[in-house]
């Protein structure tokens, strides 16, 4: 009987360190308990994890592919080039003089001569049509001066193009800005599309996890009521659901990681071959440690965030009757 005597609120007798220890104990307990409870209904847990995994994996894969397209852009030094195709019968020394003269112009940053021989070698190396060229009596390719203009502003470039057009011995002036511009616009479009898909799917993940938590709260309603009746604080009641959100997010992120790595393995062969055909030694990389950590962290954060929203909306409505 002695140890059942009334002696005031037990809480007031606890020191701060005792309360911190109790707080840590409950966190550790709920951390494990939330995961174990998920395994009580494995089918529901796995379904949620798979949905979250797919929703996370899709934008990650799109992002990686875009990154790949981005390296193509980096390959190119960033400023548009003008190609000056010379008449076929221009001698090499004449072409060389012409290149020096053009390079000296104030409105040009650099000019490089690609002789007929170099053009032929390049073509043989990259096109795979070397045999056909060899069967021709002489080199059909013209010499070419590649020019990087100093300014790419619309008016400047038009003036430069017009003046180059006036040069003698020039067969054709080709300015590659237009298709580059189109490519970049397309890349930008794809980037924005990926971002919007990513945002939409992240919201989807929030809703999926939030809904799972809402159902769990509903299932544990009587438990919540009793805990509140015998003195459970709001944060005590909230804690299991925050950890549930964490586990749902983390499990989904692990699933997404598996999907992404598998997809990279599946896609890397064709992509490497494609890259090689563009003189690019790019290879699709598996997610490294940092990226893996980022995926797992992002997934868990989404889970906790979904839980915070859902718990805030649904838990306060449950009051003991």
């Amino acid at each position: 009987m002695a140890n059942l005597t009334a002696s005031g609120a037990s809480l007031s007798r606890q020191g701060l360190s005792d309360r911190l220890a109790a707080w840590g104990r409950h966190h550790r307990f709920v951390f494990k308990d939330a995961l174990l409870r998920l395994f009580d209904t494995p089918l529901a847990a796995i379904t949620t994890w798979m949905v979250v995994a797919i929703a996370l994996a899709l934008p990650i894969i799109l992002y990686l592919l875009l990154n790949y397209a981005g390296t193509l852009r980096q390959d190119w030094d960033g400023s548009p080039r003008i190609s000056l195709y010379l008449d076929r019968d221009v001698a090499e020394d004449v072409a060389g003089n012409m290149t020096s003269r053009i390079a000296a112009r104030a409105d040009i940053s650099s000019a490089t001569l690609i002789t007929k021989q170099q053009a032929l070698l390049d073509f043989e190396r990259h096109s795979g049509f070397g045999d056909i060229l060899n069967s021709l009596p002489d080199n059909p390719l013209p010499a070419l001066i590649e020019i990087t203009p100093l300014s790419t502003a619309g008016g400047d470039i038009q003036l430069l193009l017009a003046s180059l057009q006036q040069e003698e011995l020039v067969e054709e002036v080709v300015y590659d800005a237009e298709w580059m511009l189109r490519l970049f616009t397309m890349l930008e479009l794809a980037e924005r599309l990926t971002l919007s898909i990513g945002i939409v799917l992240a919201v989807g993940v929030l809703l999926i996890i939030g809904n799972t938590i809402r159902l769990t709260i509903e299932n544990r309603r009587s438990e919540i009521e009793v805990v509140k009746l015998v003195g459970g604080t709001d944060s005590f009641v909230r804690r299991p659901f925050l950890y549930l959100g964490f586990w749902l997010g983390l499990g989904g992120a692990v699933g997404a990681w598996l999907v992404v790595q598998t997809s990279i393995g599946y896609l890397s062969g064709p992509i490497e071959r494609l890259a090689q055909s563009y003189r690019n030694d790019f290879a699709l990389q598996f997610l490294g440690i940092e990226e893996t950590a980022l995926v797992l962290l992002g997934g868990s954060l989404l889970g906790v965030l979904a839980s915070v929203f859902s718990v805030g909306r649904h838990l306060s409505r449950i009051q003991p009757k």
Binding site: S10, D18, R19, E223, V227, L229, V230
Partner: peptide, 27 residues
């Protein structure tokens, strides 16, 4: 409580221990 307000998914021990767990007492 008149309707006891017990948790039916926990055994007697866990039901009685609940206020102490909430209060953060040592195991």
């Amino acid at each position: 409580f008149q309707n006891h307000q017990l948790l039916f998914d926990r055994n007697v021990y866990a039901n009685v221990a609940l206020p102490l767990e909430i209060g953060g007492h040592r195991p």
